[in-house]
Design a protein around this nucleic acid. Sequence first.
DNA 1: CGGGACTTTGATGTAACTCAAAAATTGTGG
DNA 2: CCACAATTTTTGAGTTACATCAAAGTCCCG
Lengths: 249, 249
Amino acid sequence: MHFYHNFAETDNEIVKIINKIPNSQQCDLRKIEAFKRLKPDEIEMLAEERYCSYHNKGAILYREGNRINGFYCIHKGIVKLFKTGINGKEQIIKFAKQGDIIGYRSIVSHENACTTARIIQESYVSFISSHSLMTLVKANYIFSLALMQLACKELDEANNTIIKIAQKTVKERLAEVLILLKRDFELDNKQNLQISLTREELANMVGTATESVIRLLADFKANGYIALDGRKIRIIDEKALLKLGKIND
Amino acid sequence: MHFYHNFAETDNEIVKIINKIPNSQQCDLRKIEAFKRLKPDEIEMLAEERYCSYHNKGAILYREGNRINGFYCIHKGIVKLFKTGINGKEQIIKFAKQGDIIGYRSIVSHENACTTARIIQESYVSFISSHSLMTLVKANYIFSLALMQLACKELDEANNTIIKIAQKTVKERLAEVLILLKRDFELDNKQNLQISLTREELANMVGTATESVIRLLADFKANGYIALDGRKIRIIDEKALLKLGKIND
DNA sequence: CGGGACTTTGATGTAACTCAAAAATTGTGG
DNA sequence: CCACAATTTTTGAGTTACATCAAAGTCCCG
C-alpha cells in the first residue's frame, strides 16, 4: 500500500495556489484533442478562464467520490485514473497524457468523480470550470458532438476491456498491456517504454496479483520477448507478444 | 452454439418489411428515456420519420461489425447486446428494455456496430435514422446533453463492470448478477425473475463457464438463497446474496 | 416418439492466488 | 555521502477456484 505524503493528499486547494503557473505556451489549449473543433474566439475564452498548474509525481487531482466542479486538460505528463475496489485494491482504468481531458464525465452527469486521478509523471494541467464547459456545449453543437464522440470512444474501449478480462488469461492480458503501453507512450532514448510503472501498477492494469506479473515478466524475459532493467521494460519481440496476447488488429 | 433459423439472420431488410407495423401507441416515443427533453414538435418529427417493427425471439437487429445508419428504440421486450470474443464466446454487455435506445454509439462515432443486438423477448422497436438524430443534436443542445449523459452513464457502468470482473470471484459475480436482474426486470406473478436466460447466457454475463454457473446456482439453492424451476429463478434470500456478492449500495 | 438443444454431474488438470520470507532497490535524514 | 528505514521486487511452497472434457440425463416441439 502507498502513503505519499503530498500536499495534494491533504488539501487540494492549497496545492493549486502553490503550484499556480502562468498560462504559458506549455499549456496550449489548441493541443487538446477535444478542443480541435473550437473556434479561435472560443479557445480564447477558455484560455482566459482556465487555471494552469504544475504537479509532482504522487499528487492527486481529484479523488473518487469527490464533488468536482470542473475538469482537467493534460498538457504534459501522465495521470493515472483508477477506481478503488475490494480491500482497497486499485483497478487502473486508463492513463491520461498530453492532449487528453479527464473528469468531464462527472460534470456532464452531475455526479461525483468515479475515479481517482493521480500524477505519475510530473505534469502541467489546466482546470476548466463546469460553467465554461456548459457555455461551449450550448453554443457549439460540433464541440458537443466531439465530446459525445469522446465518451463513446471511451465506452467502446471499456467494453473491449470487459471482454478481455473476462475471456483472456493473465498471461495474454499482460502481453497485451505491454503492447498497448508501447503504442500509447513513446520509447525513451534506450528503446524502453517511456512510462515507468511499478509491478503492482502493472498488476492493477491487468487485473491480477503483483506476484503473477513478476513471474510472467520473468517468463517473457526468459523467452527473449522483453528485456528488463528495474522498472524499465524494453519490448524485443513484439510479434511474439502479439501472438501470445491473441491480438488481432 | 445456437442456430436460430430466423429471417433476421439472413436478411435484415426482408424482416423489416415483413414485420412493419403501424405507429401505434405501443410505440410511444415519449416513453423513451433519452427523448424526455424533446419538445412536442420534435417528438412529432421523429414519429413521422421513424420506422416501427415487431420482432420475435432470436431476431437480430444488427450485428457486430455491420454498418448501421440509424439506431433503435425499445418499446417493449428485451434485447441482448453482446460482443463475440475468443472462440466465438459471447460476452453480454447489457440487456436493453422498454425506454432504452441502442446503437446510437455507433452512429455518433461514425463507426461500425461494436455489439450484436438479438431479441430475447418479443419486441416492438422503432428505427430512427442517423440523419434524424443529427438534426436533433444540432437543434437542441439539451437533448444533445442528455445523449452525452447517457453515454457517460454507460461508461460508468462499464468501468464498474471491469473492476467487478477483475476483482470478484465467479461466485460473487453470479450473486451480483442475480441481484441486478431482479432490480432491472420485474418479477412475474410467481415472484420469479421475469427475464428468462439460459445457463449459458448467465455464464456469458458473469464471464465464466456454463458448468460453473450450474454448480453455483445449485449451491445457492442448497443454501436456500434461491429457488429454481427450469429457467425460472426466484430470489428467496436477497440479503444473503448481497452479502455473498459483496455489494455495498 | 424421436432428435436437437439445453442441463446436469463427475473426474481431472492447472492457472493463478495467497502467505511468507529473503533480496534488492529506493528514499531519507543526519 | 553514508547508513538505515521503507518500499518494492523476487522466489518458494502450498492451496484452490475454476476451466475443460466427457457422458448421461432432461426437456421440448414438431
